[in-house]
Design a protein around this nucleic acid. Structure first.
Lengths: 204, 204
DNA sequence: CCGCACTCATACCAAAGGGTATGCTTCGCG
DNA sequence: CGCGAAGCATACCCTTTGGTATGAGTGCGG
């Protein structure tokens, strides 16, 4: 076989991510990942030290792909409100309709609770998404002179809601209906764009 | 050993739930569950046909305990708004501060995606919690003459947010701070109690 | 008091899968 | 042209764990 194995580590990571989305992280074997790119397990271990390493590589690939897509889809629009809506639409669509995403990230959440490297990688990704959304919400508020610190709390709650909607869609498939998605996005836009004080205790 | 083993299946289910919360479902062995109640694996299999059965039993126990607690904590209050707030406070407190709950339910979510009985059991539990919260929100709206169908959508989004906050607290522990919890509950109360139309398209 | 049934422990089986050691093939460089 | 290194496949090891078969002990009912 050729001595040059271009991008084999990357191809393995991509294959792993696909399989993790199809079957869940624990139900994918190293042998299956290797077979997906046409090699055997021995080859796999000449590129990755362990199954744990390929999991982290698959995560990294997923984060980069997701963030790139989010940026690409919103960069086309000029108005901050439209960009925010588009970001929410994309996020909700992926969360409710992309079963592979749900399977993979659900396993990842569970794994993150007892695996520090996985937890840290997810936290960084989550923060990157949050910063992007906070920027979008702040831009919307700047048009109506609102409180920026409110944006962060609102975004936190809506990001949490997005993750929760993803879980809910796993056992209530009708959430993926376009009308349901629209209602969810409308609810989130209303919540994020309403200019209000954070809570009674902080009311002037 | 005594022929009468009072409530052994229940004791095994409770022990399983504790262990699942400590270590995650997959990382608990049947042997460990049996040992936790002072017997061995052979005994376990005289009460349960499989590990999967004890998982379902642990789920059932968890759902019943959680619902009972929710009802007990809110039943004491008279005003619908106070009951709703108390239900949210309890839910948020459990979600952010109870690590065992997070570990167990995260694994359960991941498992529910490819396990029909687990998914159905979770969906039933989720629906029971939702019906309870919808009832509380409707009672609040009844005091101010609002749209009942709006309550269902709002509750859906806030339930999703609760699940998402649970996940977020797994990698951002500061979410468990009392001030953060209060801000989250305030945000949710605001969202649930505001009497508004579902979206611009449906505005009169 | 005996027999039966229940509950339990022990020992074992089987399967799965992460990981490793070894050897083969090919290519590039000196 | 030969040698060394890279990439790969094969065969195997080892551990873990779900599950089972069998036998022992005890209590209850007739």
């Amino acid at each position: 076989m050729p001595r040059i194995a271009p991008k084999m580590p990357k191809r393995l990571a991509v294959a792993a991510l696909e399989l993790f989305g199809e079957r869940g992280i624990d139900d994918v074997t190293v042998e299956q990942i290797a077979a997906r790119v046409g090699v055997t397990k021995g080859s796999f271990y000449s590129h990755y030290r362990s199954k744990h390493e390929i999991i982290l590589a698959a995560c990294t690939h997923y984060y980069q792909t997701h963030l790139r897509r989010l940026h690409a889809e919103t960069a086309r629009l000029a108005h901050p409100r439209d960009r925010l809506r588009r970001a929410l639409e994309l996020s909700i669509r992926i969360c409710v309709a992309d079963e592979r995403n749900r399977v993979f990230t659900s396993d990842l959440f569970a794994m993150a609770l007892h695996d520090e490297p996985v937890r840290q990688s997810w936290a960084q990704f989550y923060n990157a998404v949050r910063e992007m959304l906070v920027g979008l919400v702040s831009a919307v508020h700047a048009e109506s002179g609102s409180n920026g610190s409110d944006a962060r709390h609102s975004v936190d709650l809506m990001l949490a809601a997005i993750e929760g909607v993803k879980l809910r869609a796993g056992f209530e498939p009708h959430v993926a209906d376009p009308a349901e998605q629209r209602a969810i996005v409308d609810g989130m836009m209303h919540y994020l764009c309403s200019s209000r004080q954070p809570g009674p205790a902080e009311a002037p």
